[in-house]
Every structure is written in structure tokens, then in C-alpha cells.
């Protein structure tokens, strides 16, 4: 995850409390989504950014996961996300995200 984004996530968690923050991802690949999810839960796996060694354990989801899709107005989802849903390997993304949440998310 971009170093600046790590910094912003860290600041939001400090400002609002980690229990009140949900990180929503839009990554195009399961692996990339998993890495970003790991960064905001268990810390930066590349040891480069402000979240290195910081285990925020935040709730983190990909926009194509069913829990998140259910939150949307279906018309908005159709207009904004449906094309990408057709393109992405949603099963792979769900499996990566669930695995990271199961291991590191502190707020279930």
C-alpha cells in the first residue's frame, strides 16, 4: 500500500478509534487486495511504510464482497461497480480478504 495512504489510515484510526474505521478496497487482484488488507490489520508486510509493525486490526473489505454489495443501492452498484464485478475474480478476492480478516481483524 502507498506510503501516504498508510499514513492516512493510521491517522484516521488514531482520530476516530480503530473500532470506528472500516477500510474499503477496490484492488483489481486478489493478491493486491490481500496485501492492502494485511497492511491495515497486521502491519505493512513490506516494512516500508508508517504501518510497519502497527497492528491496527481494522475491519477491511473489498467493494465486490457480498457484505458490502448488500449495503449498496442496487442501481448505484449497477452503474458504478457491475462492469468490474464481471471482470474481477471475485471468488479469489473474497477468499484472500476472508483469510486476512480471520487472521488479523480485531473487530468482528
Amino acid at each position: 500500500m502507498d506510503l501516504e495512504n498508510q499514513k492516512r489510515v493510521k491517522e484516521f484510526a488514531e482520530k476516530y478509534g480503530p473500532e470506528n474505521v472500516v477500510v474499503l478496497l477496490g484492488a483489481a487482484e486478489g493478491e493486491a487486495a490481500g496485501l492492502a488488507a494485511e497492511t491495515v490489520t497486521n502491519g505493512d508486510p513490506t516494512y516500508a511504510g508508517p504501518l510497519t509493525g502497527v497492528q491496527l486490526g481494522l475491519r477491511v473489505y473489498h467493494v465486490c464482497e457480498p457484505e458490502i454489495k448488500a449495503e449498496f443501492d442496487p442501481a448505484v452498484y449497477e452503474e458504478q461497480i457491475s462492469m468490474m464485478e464481471m471482470v474481477l475474480d471475485v471468488d479469489d478476492i473474497v477468499s484472500e480478504m476472508s483469510s486476512v480478516r480471520d487472521q488479523y481483524c480485531k473487530f468482528k
Binding site: A28, E31, A32, M83, M84, M86, V87
Partner: peptide, 20 residues
């Protein structure tokens, strides 16, 4: 690097639009 095949991802998006 985990960023996938970028041109292919673009073509899939254009194709998905053609389907829609």
C-alpha cells in the same frame, strides 16, 4: 508484483462494457 496483466485487465473492462 501483484498488479496483474494491465492491458488484459483493460481489455476485459472494455469487453464487459460491450456485454452490458
Amino acid at each position: 508484483a501483484g498488479a496483474g496483466d494491465v492491458p488484459l485487465a483493460n481489455y476485459k473492462m472494455i469487453a464487459a462494457m460491450a456485454v452490458k
